[in-house]
Amino acid sequence: MIVIIDYNVGNVRSVCNAFRYTGCEAKLSCEPETIENAAGLVLPGVAAFGYAVGALGSLAELIKKVALNGKPLLGICVGYQMLFDRSCEHGRHNGLGLISGSVVPVPAEQTVPHMGWNMVTLPDDMELFAGVGKEKHFYFAHSFYADVADSRAKIAYTDYGFNLPASVQKANIYGTQFHPEKSGKTGLKVLKNFAEICKK
């Protein structure tokens, strides 16, 4: 069972709907025991970073612990940004620190938010994109992005006037800046791949 962490932010239901649509078992929960027993965890998030970190509260330590013990964890959008060390969205906030890097503003030379469908180049060695193709459009909606500083992380990029990290994988920790649950058929395939990873 995939557990989608329900921590009082928007859009958790969409992620659950998308997993179920692809035939994967998934449920929403914020119970520590359910989280510890899950086959894999999803940390979604439509919220400002500071609000999301505050809402996650004491669950942060638990998620960190189970992820470091090897349980697959997928962060989406702000849930992905929280995997990093820190963010400067509306003030300074610490993240989970599972992947080295900082969340910083998308440069103002571009239209901000980065909103809409952008092409992501998909490296062969990132498990989330197995069978998806060499490059695909995914849906983005964000004003900040993760400046990845982790030499052990694999990164898929999109072009937004610069190489913007669109997805990162570090061992069992996965993240997407885009919304797979809102990226049509391609996004559903990515979620199905994550469900497959959780079965291993």
Binding site: A48, F49, Y51, E89, H90, P113, S143
Partner: peptide, 9 residues
């Protein structure tokens, strides 16, 4: 709304 949900919402 922007402070709570992010301005992209």
């Amino acid at each position: 709304a922007a402070q709570r949900f992010g301005n992209q919402c």
